[in-house]
Lab assay of single mutants.
Amino acid sequence: GYRKEQERLGIPYDPIQWSTDQVLHWVVWVMKEFSMTDIDLTTLNISGRELCSLNQEDFFQRVPRGEILWSHLELLRKY
């Protein structure tokens, strides 16, 4: 899972600490993992702090059909 990727690349476990690059890395990883092609990366060119401050409605406004990303983010925030 993504935890291995975080360990390998030194990405903080807590998404709130992610840099913009780390947010984009996570988005690309999830897209590959779940064979998603319809995500516009430019809408998530934000820091982890900004990402974690979005509520579900705001998130889906930025990322239509972003349910998998949202669920994955929720999982990461719990651990």
Rank of each mutant, 00 (worst) to 15 (best):
L51K: 00
K4L: 11
S71A: 12
N45R: 12
E5W: 04
T20L: 05
S71K: 09
Q22A: 05
I68Q: 10
H25E: 04
W26I: 02
K78W: 06
Q22N: 12
R62S: 08
M31E: 05
E50P: 00
L9I: 10
G66Q: 02
E74K: 09
E5Q: 04
W26R: 01
I11G: 02
R8Y: 05
Q17M: 08
R49E: 15
W70V: 01
L51Q: 00
L24T: 11
S35Q: 14
H72P: 00
M36E: 12
M31R: 08
K32S: 10
G10R: 10
N45C: 11
R77W: 01
D40Q: 06
I68T: 11
W29Y: 09
L75G: 09
P64E: 06
V63D: 03
Q56L: 05
L44T: 03
E57L: 10
H25P: 00
E74R: 11
W18S: 02
D58K: 09
W26K: 01
E7G: 05
Q61W: 05
L76G: 00
F34K: 14
E74F: 05
N55C: 09
W18R: 01
Y2C: 06
D21K: 13
S71C: 08
I68K: 14
L76E: 04
Y79R: 11
F34N: 15
R65Q: 15
Y13L: 13
G10A: 11
Q6S: 06
E50C: 10
Q22T: 01
N55F: 03
L75C: 12
R49P: 14
T43G: 14
D58C: 07
I39C: 12
L9V: 13
I16T: 11
N45V: 09
V27K: 04
H72W: 00
D21E: 14
P15I: 05
W70M: 03
R77Q: 05
Q56A: 12
M36Y: 11
F34W: 10
T37F: 13
K78Y: 07
L41G: 08
H72E: 14
Y2N: 08
L54Y: 06
L54G: 02
F59A: 02
I16Q: 15
L24H: 15
H25R: 05
L41D: 04
V28E: 12
K4G: 11
Q61T: 14
T20I: 09
R3W: 10
S35N: 14
F60K: 12
L51E: 02
E5K: 02
L69D: 02
D38C: 13
F60V: 15
H25C: 06
S53A: 11
E57V: 10
I68H: 10
W29Q: 03
G66R: 03
V23T: 11
D14E: 08
H72I: 05
V23Y: 02
S71P: 09
D58G: 11
E57Y: 14
S47Q: 06
Q17C: 09
N45G: 10
S47M: 04
W18G: 02
Q56F: 10
Y79L: 12
L75S: 15
S71Y: 13
S19V: 00
I16E: 15
R8P: 03
W18H: 00
W29F: 06
L9C: 14
L69I: 04
W18D: 00
Y79P: 14
V28W: 12
I46L: 12
L41Q: 09
V30E: 10
D40G: 06
L54D: 01
E33K: 14
F34I: 08
I11L: 07
R62E: 07
K4W: 09
Q17H: 15
P12L: 00
S71R: 12
E74L: 09
I68D: 05
E7N: 07
R8S: 08
F60H: 09
K4F: 09
R3V: 06
E7F: 06
R62I: 12
I39W: 08
R62Y: 08
I46P: 00
Q22G: 01
E57P: 10
D21L: 04
R49Y: 10
Y79T: 08
E67G: 13
Q61P: 02
S53M: 09
I68W: 09
I11W: 06
R8F: 05
L54M: 14
R62Q: 09
W70Q: 01
Q61D: 08
D40I: 04
V28L: 15
M36K: 11
L75A: 13
D38Q: 10
Q56T: 09
K32Y: 07
Q61E: 12
I46F: 06
L76A: 04
W70L: 04
D58W: 07
S47K: 08
C52D: 05
N55D: 14
V27Y: 07
W18F: 01
N45A: 14
E50Y: 09
V28C: 15
C52W: 03
Q22E: 14
R49Q: 13
Q17T: 13
M31V: 12
N55V: 08
P64V: 04
R65C: 14
W18L: 00
E50I: 08
Q6G: 03
Y13K: 13
N55M: 05
E5T: 05
H72T: 04
R3I: 13
R62A: 09
N45D: 08
F34G: 09
R77A: 03
V30D: 02
L73Y: 00
R8H: 07
Q17I: 06
M31Q: 15
L41S: 09
H25A: 06
R8E: 11
G48W: 01
I68R: 12
P64S: 06
D21H: 12
S47R: 06
R8A: 11
E50F: 07
S53K: 09
S47I: 06
F34E: 11
R65T: 10
F59Y: 01
Q56S: 12
V28K: 15
I46Q: 02
C52T: 06
Q6F: 07
L41M: 14
Y13F: 14
P12C: 04
N45S: 13
M31W: 05
Y13E: 14
T43A: 14
L69F: 13
W29L: 02
P12R: 00
S19D: 12
L9R: 12
F60S: 14
Q61K: 13
D40C: 05
F60I: 15
L44G: 03
W29E: 03
V27I: 11
T20H: 12
D21F: 04
K32F: 04
I68Y: 12
V27C: 11
E50R: 06
Q61A: 13
F60E: 11
E33R: 12
S71W: 12
L75I: 15
Q22H: 11
S19A: 03
F60Y: 11
S35P: 10
T42E: 12
R3H: 10
L44Y: 03
R65L: 08
G66V: 02
Q56W: 05
R3Q: 12
F34R: 12
Q6A: 10
T43N: 12
